[in-house]
């Protein structure tokens, strides 16, 4: 079994049994969502992928309570589709001082920019908007995320929801009238689930 021991150390193989001990989470601020997530919140030091079809359905609102509590370590926004509006961020309790925005000119530069930030900003928060990211790229990022204990949230188009990914948490967001539907597609240490959050709770 010697080969197995070395592989598991070097390759950061995930084994279901030994996971829970160092599983750090951050409460989402939505009790219904917390109940569905193992550890009761967003997995820190791991990759979270959110798949959406339209912007503005509450994808930022669902992160805001947690972001407000993580702001002191720095939040980096990479390739956001629009400008996050400073007055609204302040109203949600975020500290603008440690915030950094990066707008790579090419979509291909986004993973590179994410990597640069991951290398430098330990224990920070990274929000990035990816499209057509390769599995190998995501794997590399995942290793960095774990090593640097970064809370990383990646947004991708809905059609990519079925691709393979090393993310610890994959969720799909959609809007149904006045409610935000959250479908947990994959969740390390948990089960897929669907919940709905009232729109006014996450809406802007």
């Amino acid at each position: 079994m010697a080969w197995y021991a070395t592989t598991s150390n070097e390759m950061e193989l995930w084994r279901a049994g030994c996971l829970q001990s160092d599983w750090k989470t951050l409460a989402t601020g939505f009790p219904a969502l917390d109940r569905c997530l193992p550890g009761g919140g967003w997995p820190l030091a791991a990759m979270t992928e959110i798949f959406i079809d339209e912007y503005g359905i509450g994808e930022l609102g669902v992160l805001m309570p947690a972001l407000a509590r993580r702001a002191q370590h720095g939040i980096t926004w990479i390739a956001p589709p629009f400008m996050p509006y400073a007055p609204a961020l302040v109203r949600h309790g975020l500290d603008l001082r440690n915030m950094l925005f990066v707008q790579p000119p090419k979509a291909a530069d986004v993973p590179w920019a994410v990597e640069q930030v991951l290398q430098t900003r330990v224990e920070s928060t990274v929000l990035a908007w990816l499209s057509a990211a390769k599995l190998t790229t995501l794997r590399r990022l995942q290793l960095k995320i774990a090593a640097q204990r970064v809370w990383a949230v990646f947004f991708s188009p809905l059609i990519e929801a079925s691709r393979r990914s090393p993310a610890a948490l994959k969720m799909r967001l959609s809007r149904h009238d006045d409610e935000l539907q959250i479908d947990i597609l994959k969740c390390r240490g948990g089960r897929p689930a669907s919940i709905r959050v009232a729109g006014y709770e996450v809406g802007g």
Binding site: P84, L89, V90, L96, M99, F101, Q103, P104, P105, A113
Partner: peptide, 13 residues
């Protein structure tokens, strides 16, 4: 260096 000088910034009120 890679993204251009105007592409990396912070924000303030």
């Amino acid at each position: 260096e890679r993204c251009g000088p105007k592409s990396v910034y912070g924000i303030a009120l």
